[in-house]
Design a protein around this nucleic acid. Structure first.
Lengths: 198, 198, 198, 198
DNA sequence: AGATAAGCGAGACGGTACGTCGGGTCTTATA
DNA sequence: TATAAGACCCGACGTACCGTCTCGCTTATCT
């Protein structure tokens, strides 16, 4: 055993520096809206920190931004609306709302762009996963209550909903997040196959 | 009609330069897989062209890459499978397949990232639109043949399918594009609401 | 009939173009004061001429500027002051006066700088030579009238006077060209050796 | 005394970089012989230095070259020949010899060309001044020993000699520096006015 | 208390690429 | 064939960041 009581020698890293760096990175990512226009030098300057203090902690810009984004984890809405449809709409509404705003667009870019897949994975894990997990729980409860059709693959449902939200916010332009969420959920609930004449 | 008899004075721009630049840009985007690692200097060098010849045509790297990507327009698959489901699966299978590969990841980044929204719009128009249009026609024909449930909003259906494909390829990892497409289409066709007991 | 005895075929070169180019070149050389900041593009633009029209006439910027400078040949002052000293002062005064002004500084640079010696030679011939020749005639007449000490090498005298003027205008700063010329001429006339006691 | 104990923060500038840059600049100036053909990029490459390291120290090419030239200060010849004439000849011989060689021609161009007069002034101060000062001392000693005619303006004498050397090396072409120096000094010593018949 | 060791802000380092400018050449249509 | 216009390839310009490397200092732990 080495450090918990027996700490590393030398001056310990400064928590204040960590916070200042992450916060400056998010600020700038929000302002510039584009990962390419956020420079380490600008982050260091705004954080009042030397560049070496950043490179001591992260190997490069992207890793830093991933961690910065990961600190966001906005609180999920309270659920328990009583019905699976209500909960799905509630969650999807938040996802839709988050599509707006420069910071979110930048995050999406981080999600989708990377050559090095591990980075996309980490941000996915940190930011996307909580939303997926919440949706997943709603579906599971729906299965228990019988609201979810047996045989529906929850993974597929999840991706349909979230991907649908991602694209619909852009292609269909305006409209309230609420309306968008309701349309998507209801379409998926009902399916699109014509009912057999019976 | 613009100037066929009265042409602009001076040497006209070289078609060969246009082609060389666009093709070099795509090459490099495919190789590097990351817009940030494709440099104008490298494009100019590979195209055998001066940098000024590029900047005379495009204001910057991103605009150039957008146009380069827009020249891709891979052919859509032949449809006429006989059923709406078959056609949807066929189209979605191609979309799923296109998610793999460095070039496509780079394109996705361009799609989603931009601060200047016009650029995202142009690439959307050039690359995404044909696929959306094909899906749209399939849905319209399904409505005519009665295979599509009346009341289903085609726009929403479209976004659910394409967004679902986008995410499912990543989250569910492996699997053939075919299987992915079938799962998504079937899930959406059937809907996820439990059938009313009746 | 095409050519007085036999003219060259095709459109003849435009005299107006020659004039416009040379005049624009001098203008810009005067304004910018520095050969490096005079661009062929600017000359062509100001002259209302295509760049090719310049390159058809001169092989490069320096040759063009040499020719432009050579068109200056400002008139020399009338002499016949009656005495060698008077004429020398008159000529040297003009040389001193010409040291001021951006154009002259640029010309001096052309005179002194060139790696390719032929160009310096041509401008020397065109601009410096007339002044030297005038001084030389004054000295020759001085020799005839006995005002010039026999044995004085006219070439050396000439160079002492003109070089002296070149430097004295700069080092001694202010002062009228007249005073400068008189000081130099009188110093050289009297010599600097102490008179033998005898 | 400035800040020996309280130093500027950050990494101090590298002496080795200074030296490498100045030396590379002189090398190239000597090779190319023409300020316009010496590029900052070439200097940086030869010095093994980034361009920014140059621009951190000098605002542009000319200022750098001025400083580079200023480091030359070749040693003046030992004097004490016993006579004023001997010393003058010795000094002027060196000045004449320095007219040859590409580096010196380039320096002369710097001296004479500049639009911004301050730069010419600095190089004048660094390179020309020592020679002028040496000549000046010789003249002063000549005045003390009575070899210099009372009433001769030392400033004018100086400019006559150095300017004469500058021009004579070019106009009179060949000849040894020694012969050139002797001719000029003797001409000026004796003066050019015919001795009054008395 | 002093030594040791690492972190700190600052900023210079060697580089890469940027977007601009100008050089000298080439290619149009027109005169 | 010359002309005005302007595109062509090339390469230097001066700037902005990259990720690394000193500096002098501070802040801990370990003798």
């Amino acid at each position: 055993m080495q450090t918990p009581p027996g700490r590393r020698p030398g001056r310990p890293r400064s928590r204040r520096a960590d916070d200042a760096i992450l916060s400056a990175a998010l600020d700038l990512l929000g302002e510039r809206g584009n990962i390419a226009e956020v420079s380490i030098e600008a982050i260091a300057a705004r954080a009042g920190v030397g560049k070496a203090t950043i490179y001591r902690r992260w190997p490069g810009k992207e890793e830093l931004l991933v961690d910065a984004v990961a600190t966001l984890r906005p609180p999920l809405p309270d659920l328990d609306e009583g019905s699976m449809r209500g909960d799905l709409v509630l969650l999807l509404e938040q996802v839709c709302a988050e599509m707006d705003g420069k910071l979110q667009r930048a995050i999406n870019a981080l999600l989708v762009s990377r050559a090095h897949p591990e980075i996309g994975a980490r941000i996915k894990h940190a930011v996307l996963a909580p939303r997926r997990e919440a949706l997943y729980q709603v579906l599971r409860r729906g299965a228990e209550t019988g609201e979810l059709r047996p045989g529906a693959d929850p993974e597929a449902v999840l991706n349909l909903l979230m991907g649908g939200a991602l694209l619909h916010r852009r292609s269909a332009g305006g409209g309230s997040p609420r309306a968008c969420a309701e349309l998507l959920v209801d379409t998926l609930l009902a399916g699109i196959a014509a009912p057999r004449p019976a």
